[in-house]
Amino acid sequence: MKTSLDDMVDRAPDGELEIAGGVFKHTYDGNWKLYLENLCDAAHPWYTHRSSIAAAQQQKDDVFSDGTGEIAIRQMRQNGAPYSFWENQVGIWTYANGHSYLGDYHDDSKLVAALNDPTFREYHSAMETKKGKAETQRIMEVRRWNSNFYPNMSMMSQFQQLRVIHPISVNKTVVHTYCFKLKGAPDQMFRNTVSFANVVNGTGSLVLTDDLEIYNRIALGLSSEGAEWLEIGRGFTSDEPDPHGGRKGKNSTSEVYIRNMFDAWRGYMFGDSGSGAKKQVA
């Protein structure tokens, strides 16, 4: 997990981050754990975000944009990658104490560092000037989507986003989300970060609103007495050890990271280190 934290800072040409751009505060009537369960879930975008994927796919690109819509629509279209892609090409890794991260799935030149975009070209050369060619290349090759720091934080190092989860009660959660400015990066980079935050973390986002809806619905379902147990078994028989000491899913859609969080939760509740944590090193 240290690599995710390092990645957040490594991406700043001057080696410093500045918290900037305001705070989203969203809330839902559900348990705090649901939020973290969603963030490393590669299975849901294809289904939960269907409406925004379809709307973005049908959008004409010659309609006026000041850059905001372009970033947002590209992100929504990326969510529409085929299910086989989500299953096989993203990657899910888990570590002791409930932490986990999901690999990145972006290949869009506006969203990830690609040299044919003028802003990224400027950024890339600022990075090379400050950090050298080899180190810049190493940093650009670290590709993370969400990194979850159990039990209350999640970040996107590649896109300069951080969320802090505040449990209010068993069925009420408030999440605060923050953006970071990369010191030494072109000004346009931060504008793109803001547009990106609006679409992935925004209270009025075309994407996040369907996630919030699902959290509310799950809480509603859990309040019934119809089911005593939740099944969190996807990938259970195929999870495998990771060379860095954790466990990873054979498929990226494995719920290994949820089982891993419950192991840690069990550890906090019983005062031991959790059954899973004992088997895992760092």
């Binding site: 751009g21 305001g22 989203f24 006026f64 944009s65 905001t68």
Partner: peptide, 16 residues
């Protein structure tokens, strides 16, 4: 542009 918004749409995003 420098601060997030509950909604901020140019024409393209508004249509979507």
């Amino acid at each position: 542009f420098e601060t997030v918004s509950l909604m901020y749409d140019d024409r393209r995003l508004l249509e979507t």
